[in-house]
Design a protein around this nucleic acid. Structure first.
Lengths: 135, 135
DNA sequence: GTAAACCTTCCATAACAGGAGAAGGTCAAG
DNA sequence: CTTGACCTTCTCCTGTTATGGAAGGTTTAC
């Protein structure tokens, strides 16, 4: 299988496939006599794995760390569990931050509906965007 | 007031103050004969406004749009309300996405706790990171 | 007189996952 | 034989936002 076919099969552009190779996500493929990359079904599987892992929010660097373990002969399970735990904590933290920001925005939106533009003076710039009383 | 004093008063580095000037967030200050920037209390107020608006999640570009309206003599209230509405919708969308990602991560973490590493074969790379059944 | 504060301008950074274009080699078909 | 669809490597660019850094020069303050 040449790179174009793998690209068609996997849905990744050929550029991305080469890029993954440089990032250690795909093994260096064998080459045909003309220098073209030659791939097997295992490469297609790996590309699918990468896509699954990306869906879980892992970065390419993290995915590479999993693949390297596997290639070194170690089952990456406990490492993957660690990554997932950390990622989950990360997502939770961002959720908390965003939830707080949403509360603040909601309060500002409410304020914006009650304040009269006539009362907005130049030196305020905007009387809506002022600090909120701590909730 | 010179830039260093304004920096100390506002808590922004002098670099940032000059940067805000280039972005239209601060008016071009008058200059003393030696070329130094000379600021007034209005500039300090404006820096405080910028900080408040940043806390609400507005970007410098958005903040500049508010300031430009004000400087043009228009009360920016309705524009601010629009921005806040859009920002709130934005935050809500990101919250939804993150919430979904969290669900997926939680499911993967659960799966990781139940699967046996012994069952993880090389061609899987990792049997945890596989697509989840649609919920 | 020397250190601190100011001035300008251009460039770099983080963080991520690629994309763009150039310049060229190779292979099948018509 | 040539055209078009592949393939190769190389190096830089993109978008996003808000600064930070370094270089090189003048002015002020003690």
């Amino acid at each position: 299988m040449r790179i174009g076919e793998l690209a068609a099969a996997s849905g990744h552009p050929t550029r991305t496939i080469r890029f993954y190779e440089t990032r250690g996500l795909l093994p260096e493929p064998t080459r045909s006599t003309n220098g073209y990359r030659v791939y097997t079904g295992a490469d297609a599987d790996r590309l699918e794995f990468i896509r699954n892992a990306q869906t879980a929010g892992l970065t390419l660097t993290e995915i590479a760390s999993i693949i390297h373990l596997r290639d070194a002969g170690t089952a990456p399970c406990s490492h993957v569990n660690q990554l997932l735990d950390a990622k989950l904590a990360d997502v939770q933290q961002r959720l908390d931050q965003l939830t707080e920001l949403r509360s603040e925005l909601q309060a500002l939106v409410r304020r914006g509906r009650t304040l009269d533009p006539e009362d907005c003076t130049t030196n305020d710039i905007c009387h809506i965007l002022r600090p909120l009383a701590p909730t």
